[in-house]
């Protein structure tokens, strides 16, 4: 593979990894966490079930950690080549371009914090920890709660807007009308996932 093709596939892999598997996992993650609205017992049962999935550790590394690490680190590198100009070009799409990069940087910090506090801090006795109580206690802090709200909305926005640009990058939507129609898909993804995510996080504070 030539240098040109390597660069091309790196960029395309960055685009693809944001949707499959990361976007898919985000949707699943928010969906499963909605169980929190049914109380601690139901939530912990759901967590146990997931932990008993065959090859769980390999799925975690292969579908979550490695793609996230690649998408995040390469994404920061790509963001480093940007000079946003929303003050002189006040168009919606230019704002979306800026927000995509801003939420990406927020998410890099949020995901590290989130992984550290829920997965890595008790890595030795992960199977026996009461995750519902752990979340309840950590979300008592108004700051952590606010960080979670910002993190969830950043993630759902980043995915929804990412679907829009993904469909251009891979050649699905070419014309302006097709791209406008894709905004509806993007908006629906944002609204539905945000609703599920925010309701779930609220359940830990109830």
């Amino acid at each position: 593979m030539t240098f040109e093709e390597r660069h091309f596939w790196l960029r395309r892999l960055h685009s693809l990894s944001g949707i499959v598997p990361i976007g898919g996992y985000l949707a699943f993650h928010l969906y499963e966490n909605y169980t929190a609205t049914r109380g601690g017992e139901a939530y912990n049962r759901m967590v146990r079930n997931l932990q008993e999935t065959p090859f769980a550790i390999f799925l975690e590394i292969g579908i979550i950690i490695v793609p996230l690490l690649f998408h995040g680190v390469y994404g920061l590198f790509v963001t480093g080549t940007a000079r946003p100009n929303v003050t002189s070009n006040r168009y919606v799409r230019n704002w979306m371009y800026f927000l995509q990069r801003a939420t990406g940087v927020i998410l890099f910090a949020f995901v590290i914090f989130h992984l550290w506090t829920t997965r890595l801090v008790n890595i030795r006795d992960h199977e026996s920890v009461d995750l519902f109580r752990l979340m309840q206690e950590s979300l008592q802090s108004r700051w952590i709660y606010a960080f979670y709200i910002v993190g969830i909305l950043s993630a759902t926005f980043h995915l929804a807007n990412g679907i829009w640009s993904f469909s251009i990058v891979w050649g699905l939507t070419v014309g302006p009308r097709a791209q406008r129609r894709m905004i509806w898909v993007s908006a629906a993804v944002f609204l539905i996932l945000s609703f599920i995510g925010i309701r779930s996080i609220q359940a830990f504070r109830a």
Partner: peptide, 15 residues
């Protein structure tokens, strides 16, 4: 277009 500085550097800001 596929090389560095080419098409994939586009960020779809559409200005």
């Amino acid at each position: 277009l596929m090389g560095e500085g080419g098409l994939d550097e586009c960020g779809n800001a559409q200005n």
